[in-house]
Design a protein around this nucleic acid. Structure first.
Lengths: 147, 147
DNA sequence: ATCTTTGCAAACTTTTTGCACCAAT
DNA sequence: ATTGGTGCAAAAAGTTTGCAAAGAT
């Protein structure tokens, strides 16, 4: 919760204003702490403040993203998911069952290095999801009808 | 071009039909051979067959994807890009200038293995893009005004 | 008082769908 | 003849925008 105030001050320092809506969205983001969609956030903030509009959520996320506090990822087809930038992780997403798991960024270190060395390309961690098939769905594929 | 006929036979074998539109979309896909959007493909096919509709392009891509012949990737925000599945590559995408480069899948081998070993997660190659900053844009950031 | 943000509605972009007609087998 | 595909138009889904009123500084 300390952190929340710090972000809000940061926001003000850059010429922005601290509003009820922004406080609520940020709060929701801290509370949820997982990959949430804009609509997820809307649902959370609306429990306390039903007047807050989806477009405000988007605009707040935008503001927070410009501050570098928030990042978003496209996990697959539909909506983007947003999260605070502190916990540095990546996502693996099962394309069969939509299961999402966070994995440590460490696993990407070598790839990151190779891309820098070979292509002078600086990967932005956290901004892509790895698509594939999860353990459970792999098993299902192996034993189609469970004998 | 041999390959094209093979795909079409494949399509028929699985209960599908070989139509003018499908031939045209497939042809366009072979011709373009890079990451193209559905609309790119539409433009290509419409030079020869203006009656072909965007929804037909989507439906054909869908059919080809079910066959495993085509794959699509979400490079970032907007549209998805489609490509034939043969050349196994990944994409690195510059988030500053939208520059796209193909890189060999080989670079992902270790990551792939780690994810399998640690999470029993089977990565689907080709289905995600790596976002970051390209060489040129990195340079621009270093020397803001070129002295 | 000024300049930013909000709520709303409406636009926009990309993709999907329902349906009647048409075409491939 | 049958089943699957096409073109069209309209809907969906997700996100963005214009504007006047409200709010933060």
């Amino acid at each position: 919760m300390e952190r929340m105030e710090a972000v809000l001050q940061n926001l003000r320092a850059s010429g922005g204003r601290i509003t009820h809506a922004r406080r609520a969205v940020l709060q929701a983001l801290v509370t949820a702490r997982t990959h949430v969609t804009a609509e997820d956030l809307l649902n959370i903030v609306q429990t306390g403040s039903p007047e807050i509009h989806l477009s405000t959520v988007y605009r707040t996320l935008d503001a927070l993203e410009n501050l570098g506090v928030v990042d978003h990822v496209h996990l697959g087809h539909g909506r983007a998911v947003y999260h605070l930038t502190d916990n540095a992780h990546q996502h693996i997403v099962c394309e069969k069952c939509s299961y999402v798991e966070e994995i440590p960024s460490k696993l990407f270190n070598e790839l990151e290095k190779n891309l820098m060395d070979t292509y002078q390309f600086k990967v932005r961690m956290n901004h892509f999801a790895v698509i594939g098939t999860c353990q459970r769905c792999l098993k299902k594929l192996e034993e189609p009808k469970h004998a």
